[in-house]
C-alpha cells in the first residue's frame, strides 16, 4: 500500500533507559527508527530491517527484542533499555571489558545487540560454548567468526554466580 495521505500521528508514553518519554510518532515508524532518529539513541543499529541480523536488539519489557520488527506505537506503556542505558547502569561492564580484552568485536556494528543478548543468555545460566553458539544464532556478526565473542561471553558466564 502506498501511503500518499498523511496518517494521523499517535502520542505514546514509554520509559526508555529509565526516563519517561512522551512523544508523537507516526503509526508506521519502527521502534528502531524512533529510538535512533527521535531520541538520538544511535547505539541501536539497523543491519537488515527484517528481523534477521539482531543489530537492532533492545530490551523490551525485560526481554531482548528486535526493534526493527516493533512499531514505535507498540512502545506505549513499555519499558525499554538500549545499549546506552545498559552501559550507563554498568550492568554490561564485565561483558564490555571482556569483549575488548578478547577482541570480540571488529567493526562494532553488531556489538550492542550481541552484548544485550549475551547478558540475557548469561542470566539464563547458559555458559557452555556450544550452547552459547546456539543462543547467539540470532545475532549475526560478519567480522569476527564468533569464536572470540563466544569465548568472551563464556569467560564472564564462568565468573557469574547463578542460582
Amino acid at each position: 500500500m502506498i501511503l500518499t495521505e498523511p496518517v494521523a500521528p499517535v502520542t505514546i508514553e514509554t520509559t526508555v533507559n529509565g526516563e519517561t518519554v512522551r512523544a508523537v510518532v507516526s503509526p508506521r515508524q519502527s521502534l528502531a527508527d524512533f529510538l535512533r532518529d527521535d531520541l538520538g539513541l544511535t547505539g541501536t543499529r539497523i543491519g537488515c530491517e527484517h528481523g534477521v541480523c539482531g543489530t537492532c536488539t533492545v530490551v523490551f519489557d525485560g526481554r531482548t527484542a528486535r526493534s526493527c520488527l516493533l512499531l514505535a506505537v507498540q512502545a506505549d506503556g513499555a519499558t525499554i533499555e538500549t545499549i546506552e542505558g545498559a552501559t550507563r547502569s554498568g550492568r554490561l561492564a564485565s561483558l564490555q571489558a571482556a569483549f575488548r580484552a578478547r577482541s570480540a568485536l571488529q567493526c562494532g556494528f553488531c556489538t550492542a545487540g550481541v552484548l544485550l543478548t549475551a547478558a540475557e543468555v548469561i542470566e539464563e545460566g547458559v555458559s557452555d560454548p556450544t550452547a552459547l553458539r546456539h543462543a547467539l544464532s540470532g545475532n549475526l556478526c560478519r567480522c569476527t567468526g564468533y569464536q572470540a565473542i563466544v569465548e568472551a561471553i563464556a569467560k564472564v558466564a564462568a565468573g557469574t554466580p547463578h542460582d
Binding site: T42, G43, I83, T87, Q96, R102, T111
Partner: peptide
C-alpha cells in the same frame, strides 16, 4: 585490544 573498541562496546561508535 584496539583503542576504538572502547567506544564501540558502549554503543558510542559514530556511523
Amino acid at each position: 585490544p584496539t583503542a576504538r573498541s572502547a567506544r564501540l562496546v558502549n554503543g558510542a561508535g559514530r556511523f
